[in-house]
Design a protein around this nucleic acid. Sequence first.
DNA 1: TATGAATGAGGTTTCATTCAT
DNA 2: AATGAATGAAACCTCATTCAT
Lengths: 211, 211, 211, 211
Amino acid sequence: MNIKERRAWEKKERRKQILDAARKLLFAKGLNAISMSQIAKQAEIGVGTIYFYYQSKEELFAELQAEGLELLFSKTKKACAKESDFAGKLRNAAHVFLKFSKDNKAYFDIINYFLSATDQIFTPNLKEQIDEHGNKVIFVVENIIEEGIKSGTFKKIDARRLAILFWATLFGLIHFQKLKSTILKRDTFKNLFGYSVDNFISTLVLKEVYK
Amino acid sequence: MNIKERRAWEKKERRKQILDAARKLLFAKGLNAISMSQIAKQAEIGVGTIYFYYQSKEELFAELQAEGLELLFSKTKKACAKESDFAGKLRNAAHVFLKFSKDNKAYFDIINYFLSATDQIFTPNLKEQIDEHGNKVIFVVENIIEEGIKSGTFKKIDARRLAILFWATLFGLIHFQKLKSTILKRDTFKNLFGYSVDNFISTLVLKEVYK
Amino acid sequence: MNIKERRAWEKKERRKQILDAARKLLFAKGLNAISMSQIAKQAEIGVGTIYFYYQSKEELFAELQAEGLELLFSKTKKACAKESDFAGKLRNAAHVFLKFSKDNKAYFDIINYFLSATDQIFTPNLKEQIDEHGNKVIFVVENIIEEGIKSGTFKKIDARRLAILFWATLFGLIHFQKLKSTILKRDTFKNLFGYSVDNFISTLVLKEVYK
Amino acid sequence: MNIKERRAWEKKERRKQILDAARKLLFAKGLNAISMSQIAKQAEIGVGTIYFYYQSKEELFAELQAEGLELLFSKTKKACAKESDFAGKLRNAAHVFLKFSKDNKAYFDIINYFLSATDQIFTPNLKEQIDEHGNKVIFVVENIIEEGIKSGTFKKIDARRLAILFWATLFGLIHFQKLKSTILKRDTFKNLFGYSVDNFISTLVLKEVYK
DNA sequence: TATGAATGAGGTTTCATTCAT
DNA sequence: AATGAATGAAACCTCATTCAT
């Protein structure tokens, strides 16, 4: 038992060590510029060793994505806690996401990498694991909406669906940010984003009290 | 003049021929599986010849994207014309987009390829050209919203912004479709999608007449 | 006759035009970065047209080399004229060459290109034409040495051979400049160069009057 | 330890094997005609494998150059040892170099390749490594000159500088050999070369005893 | 006289993964 | 448990020259 635990602990340590190396490179060079050999060199282990702890590059990246989602989760939660009214919470969540996409571009990219991937690249197993983390993020918003409904601030709507829609909308908008120099007039994206969030929230609130 | 015209025509033909080959491969093998040499082989010309007609792979792909956007544009337009009430037009537009993302996956992927690309890969020139086509698609919806406003069906809102938001939302949702087996319960995406569209439209309509 | 002359004149003009384009690119981008198509574009003519006026890229480059040699020739001549004593003339010639290799790097590179070329790339015809220009440069020094001999300043030596040796030595030295950060201590090349020139001249002068 | 040593030995063997293939091609086809894939094919390994042992083509070529310089070094040393008087030693060194440039043209070309290269292509690291080998060659002559000075045969001059000048001069002359059919009269290059060497040596010797 | 489309081999380098040790 | 050598296809792009028009 003792030795088994030790083994398990060492395995985790090793995975961490590899992940640390990968993360360091991810932030330093960006998603497309890192290879398994580079990660191995950075971690000061052999390439083969990585494959002992991770089945594939995707699995390794998935763990990084999970990290990113966890970070987004905690940031979102914290930001929502700061505000007491429900609409304010959601606005905060939205702005946290926009900020996250910039300040933690590497994490955002890797999340997008999995979400945009043309081909099916996950093992179902892997997919579930990732989505679990994503779910936590969604749940924060779902919760807020539910609370809003309970408190009578929001209409009696499908909280789950709207939470998903909330994130999907923001995700789409952030992608469209690429068009800022052509389709969007420059400097207007922030406004568009804020406007869109308000528009979304207006959907939720009971009566036209919400402006 | 006659000979010049002929030359110009031939040049256009050649570009088309190359594009045909690229498109064929794109549909057969998907975006990530095609290379310039494969396109050359398919088109039965030398690799260098492609580079005579297209400055880079990106430029070639951009033209495919433009095609895709044009196709989306015409489909959207046609679908919107079928319905006379404005909300119905928008719903049609949305469903056309969802269908397009499935039926014309290759085109959707290539559009997403440019929109998701981590790095800046376009010449500003190229970017403008592409975005122009994208703009047409957006404009269809913008137009509908404007008409809706004029007719008194919709609130006096920023039609441009909402048109962009419309597409961004759908774009985001379609990406989240990947999560259907985990975060979304299977078979619910269609419902989520429809629900989301309705939710968006409810934003626009004057009074709570819209149900 | 008249029309023939005209033709000949036009042909020369055309060659000039092409050469101008090539030279411009040579200076702007360096020897290795220019291609025939680029030259054609710069000259605003078709690629094929260049091949009407020049048989090959080498021939075109040869003409540029000839230009470079002519420039070196005139610079050398002028510099030598400034000084009345023969040793001084030679020192000036040497320093002009060193300066030329820096200030007119593109010309120096192209001269070196032909001199270093591993393979036989010239038509004998071409070779003669180029060497004629090179000969002029050599002759300047040969002449000085001869005059020096006549005047009793220099020993009765083989002026031709020593003129060639003079340039070969400098040419070799300038190549060794590449080693300045390793074999040579930095900042010493100038000294080495000056020292070498003096050493060479000491070979020529009668008696040990020369210091 | 034993196994580690074995690994290291194998690695060296592999590098040798690759180098053998490269050298073979270099001699058979010349510098400009060989590519990495050809080398791989010749060595009967994958292209990637080469890149496992050599970081770049330059690094591989650098090793060949080092070989060439070592060969030149040993030839020079041996030739100098045959002669007891210092002037004779130098004459031998010079003729060895001339012979080397013919008999080992491929090596000479590759040395020239690095020395003539227009652009900076080396890692500083690589450069140092190469120059170290070149330095050995220079040092042979430097040593002879120093001994000559000590023995009272040569003047008290800067042995280092003159050693460099020695090689630079010969290097330049050998390049000018290309001109033998035009600027030089054919069959005279040997004479010019010998004459130049003598002329150089005359610079060194004390008094005009040297003829 | 002028054009410019076409060639297509050739260039170097990267990379996820495997497997014998 | 760890290694790291080996793979080899695939990537994109360049370029001097030709030749039918």
